[in-house]
């Protein structure tokens, strides 16, 4: 991992190391979408490393249509009060006031999320301005690095939330990993042009080329519905997974949540994944992503 500047003499909150370090603690884990305190407890019981508090899971946002916004502060506070694990919540892209509200509520991470309706079609929020760390979605390396330049302390590949279809998650994670691998092979002369092509700051591009990974933790999101899906994303290089609709839109959420946690830890052990996959009941009904109209593709949101 990258070495950031040394410790200040007086205690300091909200440093890059503290924000990025928080995400390091979540690695190997599952972060679950929950819409109330009861679901949050089920997630915690199942071994989630954190929960994402939101009013509607992505599958319902798709179904209901309309503008999707930050959740009611009451609901977020209830969830914070119900569990002892970290609680995340979503702001709209570029809606820095929603982010200010979430920070004031004491959430542990803010997801500036394409699942909600964007508030700004040009700018994302300046995430350096916050003590609370941010996670952002990305479909490719340039997008990930632009978010990190804006202050994101964690990246998740976007996938296509609320579909129960892992195909876009695979596409985006592979894209990011392939672009990182390509940078590894570049010499110093080529990195300047690479930065231009990626539309990302040269310093970050150089850092990725040296590290062979992002300077922040990389999770996968958007379409994970089964233990094998979670293990697939881990084998493809995700350091952990977000599961949204996949758990609480399934027949037996508690069982499926625990099974996905197991498969995420033993992602390279097919026997464990097989055992975790037995008798889980109905999975969420999926959507074929190639039948999704462009306007309904959340992954296209974010710039």
């Amino acid at each position: 991992m990258s070495t950031l500047p040394s410790t200040p003499q007086t205690p300091e909150t909200g440093t890059a190391r503290v924000k990025r370090g928080m995400a390091e603690q979540l690695k190997g884990g599952v972060i679950m979408d929950v819409v109330n305190a009861e679901q949050a407890k089920i997630a915690e019981d199942a071994g989630a490393v954190a929960v994402m508090a939101l009013e509607r899971v992505p599958a319902d946002i798709r179904k209901d249509g309309g503008v999707a916004r930050m959740s009611d502060p009451n609901m977020i506070e209830e969830i914070i009060g119900a569990v002892s694990i970290p609680v995340m919540a979503k702001s709209r892209i570029g809606h820095f006031v929603e982010a200010q509200v979430l920070q004031s509520l004491g959430v542990d991470y803010i997801d500036e999320s394409e699942v909600l309706t964007p508030a700004d079609e040009v700018n994302h929020s300046d995430k350096w301005a916050f003590t609370t760390p941010f996670v952002c979605g990305a479909t490719n390396l340039g997008e990930a690095l632009r978010r990190i330049a804006e202050g994101a302390a964690m990246i998740r590949s976007k996938g296509e939330a609320g579909t129960g279809n892992v195909v876009e998650a695979v596409r985006h994670l592979r894209q990011i990993k392939n672009e990182i691998a390509k940078l590894r092979g570049f010499d110093n002369n080529e990195l300047f042009a690479a930065a231009k092509e990626l539309r990302a700051p040269y310093e970050l591009v150089k850092e990725v080329a040296e590290l062979g990974k992002l300077p922040v933790v990389l999770f996968s999101a958007g379409g994970v519905a089964t233990p094998a899906d979670a293990a697939l994303m881990r084998q493809l290089g995700a350091e952990g997974v977000f599961v949204g609709s996949g758990i609480f839109k399934s027949g037996d959420p508690a069982k499926r949540a625990a099974a996905i946690v197991k498969a995420t830890t033993f992602f390279d052990d097919p026997k464990v994944i097989a055992d975790a996959s037995r008798n889980l009941g109905e999975a969420m009904v999926g959507i074929n992503c190639d039948t999704l109209p462009e306007a309904e593709r959340y992954a296209n949101r974010g710039w």
């Binding site: 410790t7 200040p8 503290v18």
Partner: peptide, 25 residues
């Protein structure tokens, strides 16, 4: 997380000045 912090820590038995303490929740 908002209270998570960094501070210098004097550590008995470790020479070379305080160690860097990163405290996360």
């Amino acid at each position: 997380q908002n209270e998570s912090f960094e501070a210098s820590i004097d550590f008995a038995g470790i020479d070379g000045g305080p160690v860097e303490g990163v405290f996360i929740r």
